[in-house]
Design a protein around this nucleic acid. Structure first.
Lengths: 223, 223
DNA sequence: CCGCTTCTATGAGAAATCTCATATTCAGTT
DNA sequence: AACTGAATATGAGATTTCTCATAGAAGCGG
């Protein structure tokens, strides 16, 4: 990830986002702009971030490495959202990494300069509470779903979620991590879906061939 | 759960807790006191709470009922903590219930009167952010652990966690919910631990007989 | 004391999921 | 063009976990 010092690009980003609406102090005055390429790390494991980031464009994934050695993909985040907010409020112990999935633009407030301002800004804190609460809800939902439903149901929901145009193109490796199952088992279930005609393999990915059946499978998950 | 109108008891509760330190306005003026017996519901599923609760004494469990019909135990909370804060900030969609595990005392602020005060109080909001962030961390940790380790490891950790005096006395039904496995499988694994001599069955519960072995099993989980 | 519900307990068999081994393809590198 | 590391695939067998069936024990209101 590298910093972009072009003042015009920064101004453009600021004006094309809700960034400033999150603060009751003139945050724009402190803002920097960063650009991350696909695969770049925005937060590295065990590193104290120097900025509070606001993802302006792009998509990232958050994961942590267990003592197991296994890497567990925790969640996807899409712009707009905060990154590094847990560290700001000082509740971060685990070593987490945030990695860009595609090109990302991040507005950033330097913690050193803004920490006190942020921690006394009721508007920002309220926005942050909502954001944290929403994240919490999602986590709780997936926590209980993972335990309550076998992969077939969760995969059906994921296929529908991740295929806006009816074409599924996620990496199997990513999907397996996200769904919390082994790569092997994901492939099993995909080929099972193929056999049943729910999906059809294409040159690159799958086409959702029987949306109704997938929705039926996914039912009971949406809560 | 019923309200306690004794002003002296209320005053006593206020003075014996950090309650007032969470707010920069005179919250004590608005505070009520409630008492819940074991099994009482503090929040019912699908009900909009009229109060922001601060658990003064006691222990509660939070769970939600899936469309599945299955009930999923999400978490335990111990005093002191907030309850109903998700609803206050307006990010609550799922139907959750909070049930007292033993006798509980709750300080409570009426949402109708305090909502605006609370949502503009930077001190309270900051405390709430920390609280939500901590909750989030716990959820993420258990989310990834559940996926990464079989029950034997998690159970070992749970036994050590839930047996301060070396005697385990949790309800199997509760434990099974909490660990996210079937009752049957929990019993399997317990009897396996028995056979291996890790634990010894007593009149009521189990005694941890081989703490070292349990710690070995639990290792790799503590992150 | 009776009937009801919940918890505890155990067995048998099935389903879900994992590990390991092995190939192939593909993109990037040298 | 050869090499390498990741992603894709597929098979076989083991492990984990679940469902169902059954039964006794404990607690509780009538």
């Amino acid at each position: 990830m590298h910093r972009i010092d072009d003042v015009n690009v920064l101004a453009e980003c600021l004006s094309s986002s809700d960034f400033e609406l999150n603060f009751s102090f003139p945050a724009a005055r402190y803002a920097r702009l960063f650009h991350a390429h696909a695969g770049d790390f925005i937060l590295r494991e065990g590193e104290e971030p120097a900025y509070l980031y606001y993802l302006h464009t792009g998509r990232v994934k958050l994961y942590l490495t267990l003592s197991n050695g296994k890497v567990s993909l925790i969640d996807f985040f899409e712009a707009p959202c905060f990154l590094g907010e847990m560290e700001l409020i000082g509740v971060q112990r685990e070593s987490r990494a945030i990695q860009a999935l595609g090109d990302c633009r991040c507005l950033a407030l330097p913690v050193r300069e803004c920490r006190e301002l942020l921690l006394h800004d009721a508007l920002f804190l309220r926005k942050l509470c909502v954001y944290l609460g929403t994240k919490n809800n999602r986590n709780v939902a997936s926590l209980s779903q993972n335990q309550a439903f076998p992969l077939a149901n969760r995969l059906a929901a994921f296929l529908l979620f991740a295929s806006p145009d009816g074409h599924y193109r996620e990496r199997h490796t990513h999907a397996a991590e996200y769904l919390g199952v082994s790569y092997r088992h994901l492939l099993h279930t995909l080929s099972d879906f193929s056999r049943k005609g729910y999906i059809v393999k294409e040159t690159r990915g799958y086409r959702l061939a029987n949306r109704a059946a997938l929705e039926e499978k996914a039912r009971g998950i949406e809560s």
